[in-house]
């Protein structure tokens, strides 16, 4: 089975459904289906790994969004499911995010380490 690196960089697709981000969701689905998949968060998607996100409280036209996305929990869930999950260290630092704010179990990788990470996988899915 090929080893897949799924790269997420576009972040916050909208808050209309619990499955945003849809690529995190798909990566988890594929892990459950038996895929050997890792996830790399880069660019703005590194913010998905920040603890304490809260997208609750949206009501539009009297219709509440009962199950908003919980992206930090989704990332934590990926880690818990055994998905090796990485964030790009410089992208974290550029955004003023402290390493201590990140969910547990996530691995920071420097930009100069990305080539090694690519080489360690058979396929790169750059969403």
């Amino acid at each position: 089975m090929s080893k897949i690196l799924s790269i997420v960089e576009r972040a916050y697709h909208g808050t209309l459904e619990e499955q945003d981000d849809t690529i995190l969701w798909m990566s988890h689905i594929l892990k459950n289906a038996g895929a050997d998949i890792s996830v790399l968060l880069r660019s703005n998607a590194v913010n998905y790994a920040v603890r304490g996100q809260d997208a609750s409280g949206i009501t539009i036209g009297g219709v509440p969004l009962s199950n908003p996305p919980k992206l930090d929990e989704d990332v934590q869930s990926l880690v818990g499911a055994g998905v090796d999950t990485y964030v790009v260290r410089e992208d974290v630092e550029d955004r003023g995010i402290n390493e201590s704010e990140l969910v547990e179990g996530i691995t920071l990788v420097g930009r100069d380490g990305l080539a090694d990470l690519f080489d360690a996988h058979d396929a790169i899915w750059h969403w």
């Binding site: 089975m1 090929s2 897949i4 576009r10 690529i23 798909m26 689905i29 594929l30 289906a33 895929a35 396929a123 899915w125 750059h126 969403w127």
Partner: peptide, 22 residues
């Protein structure tokens, strides 16, 4: 279909190209 179908395809394909949205 479902993501599982996509995954099955990728395992039997010569190559896979993912074109995400920006």
């Amino acid at each position: 279909g479902a993501p599982a179908d996509f995954f099955a395809w990728t395992q039997e394909s010569t190559n896979t190209l993912v074109i995400g949205t920006k």
